[in-house]
Design a protein around this nucleic acid. Structure first.
Lengths: 192, 192
DNA sequence: CCCGTTACCTGTAACGCGGTAGGTTTCGTG
DNA sequence: CACGAAACCTACCGCGTTACAGGTAACGGG
């Protein structure tokens, strides 16, 4: 046994599942959800397509696991966010194109009819907008430039993050994503 | 000289092609490019899949025609754009979800590997950023709030437009796309 | 040591896809 | 009117896809 007796079966199984999810993230980044085949994911972890179905009974179940992993990743308590942490997050993301590409591709697909991730993104954005409004309020108080409230500015903040991601993914040379995001934050931080 | 009826045949053919492109826009909005089947497009114009291939020899050729139609649509001379026209455009788009959804879906897909629309979007965004920088310069002069130059603000403007579209497509009730866009323009219009 | 569970595999069903081949009808032109 | 081209159609090919069925080998707790 290469892994030794310390590792019991349940842990090994969970690890295998995590490995599969990681591979799925990659394949979705490369081909989107619709274009990602179970066989391609399976091959990346040394399984057959049917072997993969042993862990995730349907393709959609695998997608759900992918989305859950993301939720877990950015489950920072809303109260702990600060604007400078957002800037740092964008900077960090700029060094990991893979994760951005996965969720940019998924977001794009999700607006199509009956896409299994649609509800996920709808809920998520509603939540994130609320969070961001809170962050802005904590940082800048009730009044932002042009008399904007945090609630009105929050969708803009989210839009800038997403929109910059697409421009950056398409043409990293031409778009300084972290810099542009800082520019936007400076815009919000202006004294009215 | 091939006058008259020769013309008619050519016109009819061009009309049919336009009809097919229109149907393709719809189907792509609903299922994305990868998810859009030639058969589905064909059915919508009363053709078989093979009949459609008579007009567009491959699926990719059809996509190219779709992208060309868009280029033609927003081929407004850069010098003629003004900021208030952008706001009006966003407002207009909010009444035509179809077209937004088509290109939001395509944009999302385009960041995946070897997608046939990737180059199109890369080039397009570069062009649009330049245009927008010009628009901002004409409207606000050289200095915007926070000391931003038009060139630095342009990617933000584009990002806001795209990002708002996704939020709005996912949840039109919760997102006032035209209003939010006007908010952003007001932010840029603040006196420094 | 046995026996159920886990972790896979092979085989295959069932379907949808883009694209080719080749025929037939319709139509405008000389 | 004759002919060639355009505008379709039917038939079909080969491949990729998800998912189901059922088998097998290994592991681990009693």
């Amino acid at each position: 046994m290469p892994y030794g007796d310390a590792m019991n079966a349940r842990v090994r199984s969970a690890e295998r599942r995590a490995e599969i999810v990681r591979a799925a993230l990659e394949v979705i980044a490369e081909r989107g959800y619709r274009g990602a085949s179970l066989a391609a994911v399976a091959e990346r972890v040394g399984l057959t397509q049917q072997g993969l179905l042993h862990y995730f009974p349907t393709k959609e179940a695998l997608l759900v696991a992918v989305l859950e992993e993301r939720d877990q990743w950015d489950a920072v308590p809303a109260t702990q966010w600060r604007v400078d942490l957002l800037a740092a997050l964008v900077e960090y993301n700029a060094m990991r194109p893979g994760i951005i590409q996965t969720f940019s591709a998924l977001l794009g697909e999700s607006v199509t009819e009956g896409h299994p991730a649609r509800e996920y993104f709808t809920d998520r954005y509603r939540r994130v907008r609320e969070n961001m409004a809170g962050v802005l309020r904590a940082e800048y108080g009730e009044r932002l430039p042009s008399g904007l409230t945090p609630e009105r500015a929050a969708p803009l903040l989210v839009a800038v993050m997403d929109g910059l991601q697409y421009q950056w993914l398409l043409d990293p040379e031409s778009v300084d994503m972290p810099g542009a995001f800082r520019d936007f934050l400076a815009l919000l931080g202006e004294r009215a």
